Amino acid sequence: MSALADTQISVVKPTSAAVHRTNAVTRLMVPVPLTLVLLMTLDWVSAATALLALALLMPFAGLSAKQFWLRTLPVWIAAPLSGVTMLLYGRPDGTVYWEFGLAQISDGSIAIAIATMLRVLAIALPAVVLFITVDPTDLADGLAQILRLPARFVLGALAGIRMIGLFLDDWRALELARRARGVADTGRIRRFAGMALAMLVLSIRRGSKLATAMEARGFGGDIPRTWARESRLGWADAILFAIGILVSIAVVWTSVATGHWNFIFA
């Protein structure tokens, strides 16, 4: 358990921004209404409205420009890729500009590609921005005390998350050890397979020891447990959740008012 306590997850340190005073559960739940709204329609207006709201609220997130771009880089890579897929294989409509086999670029596929790319950004960016400073322990406290999830599940998930950093350290140490023995200079696929098998065995052993240690300390008991830190909701949480609801309403209203609302379940 000492290794568990020493392991740290890469989390952006909280600042004095207002959003960082909210509960971790609130930051987890705030993007849900907006996500549901964006999943119900496929149009560029709703997604663009959500991105505009995110841009206006970014100064209150407490993130520097470097932190924002580094942490959201995978989203900016994934969004264009999803757009390219829809551009080539989306629903053909209107003028066809290029065609090769099953791939076809038309007015309809271009519109769907733009809407898909913006929708991916509008769904993923708020979640990343809000969740980037959440401490796993704070989240576990909130899940167990506020959402009333089973303590065994919450603490097991927390232990697994805390072990990620240790897993990465073990991988690097194993790689250096194999290089020192001269068995990792050739055959990258074979080397990766061997290291993956070794890490699987090590993870199973460490997981078994951790589970035994946690059971011995009463983490798996049926008696209602106490918590070292109380997790509670306040006015800041209500305001943040209200902002999320208002943004969702604004997205729907703007899309319907402009005639671009495209209900995909109709």
Results as ranks from 00 to 15, higher is better:
Ala3Met: 08
Ala151Arg: 15
Val129Cys: 00
Tyr97Val: 08
Lys66His: 14
Phe219Gly: 02
Ala144Asp: 06
Ser231Pro: 00
Asp93Glu: 15
Gly160Tyr: 01
Gly101Trp: 04
Ala257Lys: 01
Asp135Asn: 13
Leu36Asn: 01
Val134Thr: 13
Pro59Trp: 05
Leu210Tyr: 09
Val251His: 10
Arg232Glu: 05
Ser64Ile: 04
Ile223Val: 15
Ala111Asp: 05
Asp170Thr: 06
Leu81Glu: 01
Leu36Pro: 07
Gly234Arg: 12
Gly90Phe: 04
Gln8Glu: 12
Ser106Gly: 06
Val251Asn: 07
Lys209Glu: 14
Arg206Ile: 04
Met163Pro: 02
Arg190Leu: 13
Leu54Val: 05
Ser231Lys: 09
Ser82Val: 14
Thr41Ile: 05
Val251Ala: 03
Ala266Lys: 07
Ala157Lys: 09
Ala242Met: 07
Thr212Gly: 14
Pro92Ser: 05
Val45Gln: 06
Val251Thr: 12
Thr254His: 01
Thr133Lys: 09
Val75Ala: 13
Thr95Pro: 11
Thr35Ser: 10
Val84Asn: 00
Ala140Asp: 03
Met199Thr: 10
Lys66Ala: 14
Arg91Pro: 04
Phe263Arg: 05
Val30Thr: 08
Arg71Ala: 07
Phe192Arg: 11
Ile189Trp: 11
Arg162Pro: 03
Leu56Tyr: 08
Ala151Pro: 00
Pro92Lys: 05
Pro31Gly: 02
Ser208Val: 12
Leu39Lys: 07
Leu51Ala: 03
Glu215Met: 11
Arg27Phe: 06
Leu36Arg: 07
Leu39Gly: 03
Leu168Tyr: 11
Thr226Lys: 04
Leu102Gly: 08
Phe219Ala: 02
Phe241Gly: 02
Val84Arg: 00
Ser82Trp: 12
Gly221Pro: 10
Trp261Ile: 03
Val134Arg: 03
Arg205Ile: 05
